[in-house]
Every structure is written in structure tokens, then in C-alpha cells.
């Protein structure tokens, strides 16, 4: 876990702490989880991204995460709303967003792609598959993909 709210590579928004733990472990296994911050709901995520509330001291434009791993089903503000907010604001528009969710509901996939998601990943149930999927994800978005920072 990365305690600093600055210089974040990965923003993980996941309400299920167990899932979060699994993701973080998988990323750390391949040395990608060092600059990661985990938030457990959509409201926190929005505050973090736009420098509000507890994250008001953050420089929003200067200090953007390199990728957002977003769960869909969350209390208060769900993943889709977060995605929409990110895509609406010019400051956050370019941040890659990967939806990580348990369901492969067609409706969700369509909605998120319409809202400009960069990837939609169904979290595998099996441990090996899950670890592998998360590792590939992290590699792709942090090492391969060159976003317009």
C-alpha cells in the first residue's frame, strides 16, 4: 500500500477489501503496486481526483494517476458515475480507466464503453487466472501504454 497521496501510478477504487487485497498483491508480485492508492468508494475517488474534501491539498492537474482501476458496484457513487465524471472534466479526461468487475453484464459493458472506458475486465474467480489477469493489466497500462501525460 502506498501511503502518499502524491505521485500515484494506480488509483484502485474497490469497495470489497478482499478483492482490493488480491489486486494489490497481484500487482505487487510483479512490482507494479508500489505507487498505488486504494479508495473504497466512488465519492472518495472523485474527491481524490478533483482535490476536494480530505484530498483538497492535491494538485489535480500536476498529480494525475497513470491508470484508474475502477469497480462498478459501489456504495454512494458507483463506478459508472466516477467514469462519467472523469471523462467530463478536461483535467482528468486523458487518464486511462479500466473497469474491473465481477459481472460480464452486456448492459454494463455497453454503458461503460459509451462513457469512454479504456478496458473492461471481468475479474476471474480462479486465483491463478485472477493473478495473471491483473498482472497483465498492470503491465499494459503502466509499462506498455504511453498515455499523454
Amino acid at each position: 500500500m502506498h501511503d502518499s497521496i502524491h505521485d500515484v501510478d494506480i488509483l484502485l477504487v474497490e469497495d470489497n477489501p478482499d478483492d482490493a487485497a488480491l489486486v494489490i498483491r497481484a500487482l505487487k508480485k510483479c512490482n507494479l503496486g508500489n505507487k498505488l492508492i486504494h479508495l473504497s468508494d466512488g465519492e472518495q475517488a472523485l474527491n481524490f481526483l478533483f482535490g476536494k474534501g480530505e484530498f483538497s491539498e492535491r494538485e489535480v492537474e500536476e498529480d494525475k494517476p497513470r491508470v484508474i482501476l475502477l469497480d462498478l458496484k459501489m456504495p454512494k457513487v458507483d463506478g459508472l458515475e466516477v467514469l462519467k465524471a472523469v471523462r467530463e472534466d478536461p483535467r482528468t479526461r486523458v487518464i486511462p480507466v479500466v473497469i474491473m468487475t465481477s459481472s460480464a453484464e452486456e448492459k454494463d459493458i455497453v454503458n461503460t464503453y459509451n462513457s469512454g472506458v479504456n478496458a473492461y475486465v471481468v475479474k476471474p474467480v480462479g486465483f491463478d487466472n485472477f493473478s495473471k489477469a491483473v498482472a497483465e493489466l498492470g503491465m499494459f497500462w503502466l509499462l506498455v501504454n504511453q498515455s499523454s501525460r
Binding site: 470489497n16 478482499d18 488480491l22 468487475t101 465481477s102 453484464e105 474467480v125 486465483f127 491463478d128 485472477f130
Partner: peptide, 21 residues
């Protein structure tokens, strides 16, 4: 079915995941 896919898979994933760990 939505809740099954989402809500049942999540704990299962945890069982599997932590068993793996």
C-alpha cells in the same frame, strides 16, 4: 442472475484468492 454473477462471484474469488495466497 446479476446479483448471482456479481455477489456470488466476489466471495468465491476471495476464497480462491486467499487460498492461493
Amino acid at each position: 442472475s446479476y446479483s448471482v454473477s456479481h455477489d456470488l462471484r466476489a466471495p468465491l474469488r476471495s476464497i480462491n484468492g486467499f487460498s492461493g495466497i
